[in-house]
Design a protein around this nucleic acid. Structure first.
Length: 517
RNA sequence: GCCCCCAUCGUCUAGGGGUCCAGGACAUCACCCUUUCAAGGUGCAGACCGGGGUUCAAAUCCCCGUGGGGGCACCA
């Protein structure tokens, strides 16, 4: 952090939000929305997080607001190296770069919560002094050892330290006893969460616990850090998954205790695993068990960021009644936070695949070639950009993902192919007949000029007719002989992109295979 | 167990009291095209969870039920 002592305004004025420049786009547009995506660095970026980020970005961009990245790294034990980079890269891949964040800068930093410990400490002091929070010396209750009553119900913390005598607290503090700081929740009354998408949600205070604000290691819990930071960072809309609804009263109480205005709450619908195809039953939040959940895993599997953005944006929002395909800038034009649907959505892999295919077919061949190359390199195939540019037309409309081009084209770089004899011989034909066909094709192609797709087609069709063979019968053996596969790009163009010598060589090899039989 | 959220075709959704015997998209199925595989074209089928209200009128508003989901840690 640059600057001399006291240079950080957030430290000087820990109670005031940082000043951000906010300019409405125009009078008839909604006020600028300032949002943050707040992932915890405990693994790879989840597609659900990506979807939230897209909504954030759309909300900010459509109103002239800002999109902030803040890393919630308050659990030292769960920190996973590389996960922050994964998030930043994921956002970049989708084309939704944050305006502020770690490594990006901004006037409301630091953007790593682990670097904001002093700030949390100061606000903890305020709460303690005002009697809104208290120190608790009770031993921790691990998640797997929750006390339960006879009915199997969980018993919450009994608040025994809430009424500790000040002198006792001083004594135990002096004895260096470990402690946590807990929030004093009201014992009666109720809370109302005003959610932009769901209306008012009421909670009875009696059912709520005195949540921990500061852990015994001195780090804040999510509930505390999120409130402090959202306020100090001038976040206008807290957009997050609906799994946070039940714990919202804690944060509402915190806003009250700290004397701060609440942000606008927006609880987004969850992304769910696809339902069981047999029973139709739901299977919970999107998880690794039923498909990839890591955003960048989709990149690795050959999905296009354009498709991913489009698909994800459609999970809980719709562009219009009759249009599913749109660009990020088109989405910006129409996006309104309050149009997000509150109900959870099942992941629809088929639709993503379809959409990816659409976006791939829309690319200009040069662009597709560019994107294809890494997949060939990864497969150990020395395909050049020029190679791919030439071959792309053969595969562009028959692949759904970038990686699918590799098995469709790899024979172009093979010395020889190894077809299966059974694949070589078409239905209603025998080995002898197939040999005759291969020989006829060889003779025809050996002297053909020019070596072009249409010339090859014309010649081979004449050949097929003279042998009395249907196209399917005549061409499939040639395809298998030359490509080694039963599924391949269209035959004539494929042949024209191979050296004539290579074609003849492979026809000969196939003939030998049939003879040896 | 307690608390909370949600509810239109299998899925994503449009629709916000009459214009809806509910529109679009994916998937499915059929047909067309066709040298394999695709892509493309055409078409069929397919939904307002149930029950009560409110209203002249309800997919749209209210209540209950049911179903699905989420939460109940010194994790976020």
């Amino acid at each position: 952090m640059a600057g001399g002592p006291g240079a950080d305004p957030a430290l000087l004025l820990p109670n005031s939000p940082c000043s951000v420049e906010v300019t409405a786009m125009s009078a008839d547009r909604p006020a600028p929305v300032r949002v943050r995506i707040a992932p915890s660095p405990t693994g790879f970026m989840h597609v659900g997080t990506a979807r939230t980020a897209i909504f954030d970005w759309l909300a900010a961009r459509s109103t002239g607001g800002q999109f902030v990245l803040r890393v919630e790294d308050t659990d030292q034990k769960r920190f996973v190296e590389g996960s922050i980079a994964d998030v930043i890269e994921g956002l970049h891949w989708l084309g939704i770069n944050p305006d502020e964040g770690p490594g990006i800068g901004g006037s409301c930093g630091p953007y790593l919560q682990s670097e904001r410990l002093d700030i949390y400490r100061q606000h903890t002091e305020r709460l303690l002094e005002a009697g809104h929070a208290y120190r608790c010396f009770c031993p921790p209750r691990p998640a797997d050892a929750q006390p339960q009553d006879a009915g199997g119900r969980r018993a919450g913390y009994d608040r025994r330290c809430r009424t500790l005598d000040p002198s006792e607290v001083a004594g135990r503090l002096a004895a260096a006893e470990p402690f946590v700081v807990r929030l004093k929740m009201p014992l009666t009354g109720s809370f109302v969460l005003q959610d932009l998408l769901r209306g008012d949600i009421r909670f009875e205070a009696a059912a709520l616990e005195d949540t921990i604000l500061i852990k015994s290691d001195g780090y804040p819990t999510y509930h505390f850090a999120v409130v402090v930071d959202d306020h100090l960072m001038s976040i206008s809309h807290v957009m997050r998954g609906e799994e946070w609804i039940p714990s919202s009263p804690i944060q509402i109480q915190l806003y009250k205790a700290l004397g701060w205005p609440e942000p606008i709450w927006v609880h987004l619908p969850l992304v769910l695993n696809p339902p069981d195809p047999e029973t139709g039953a739901g299977r919970g939040k999107m998880s690794k068990r039923f498909g990839d959940t890591s955003l960048l895993e989709y990149r690795a599997k050959g999905y296009l960021p354009e498709a991913m953005f489009n698909y994800l944006a459609l999970l809980g929002w719709s562009f219009s009644g009759d249009q599913d395909l749109f660009s990020p800038s088109e989405a910006q034009q129409r996006f309104r936070v309050e149009d997000i649907k509150p109900s959870a959505a099942y992941w629809n892999q088929d639709k993503l695949d379809w959409m990816n295919g659409i976006y791939m077919r829309r690319l200009v061949p040069e662009d597709l070639a560019l994107r294809l190359r890494p997949f060939f390199v990864d497969a150990g195939i020395p395909a050049t950009e020029a190679d791919l540019r030439r071959l792309v037309p053969l595969v562009q409309e028959r692949i759904g993902r970038l990686d699918e081009a590799v098995p469709l084209l790899d024979f172009f770089w093979s010395d020889e192919v190894s077809p299966a004899v059974a694949d070589l011989i078409p239905r209603k034909m025998d080995a002898a007949g197939t040999r005759a066909l291969l020989a006829a094709a060889r003779d025809a192609l050996a002297v053909l000029e020019p070596w072009t797709g249409t010339a090859i087609e014309d010649r081979l069709r004449v050949m097929a007719e003279s042998l009395g063979l249907k196209p399917g019968q005549a061409f499939q053996p040639l395809r298998v002989a030359v490509t080694g596969r039963t599924v391949a790009p269209p035959l004539f163009e494929t042949l024209s992109h191979l050296e004539r010598a290579t074609v003849l060589k492979r026809l000969d090899a196939a003939t030998r295979l049939l003879t040896a039989d």
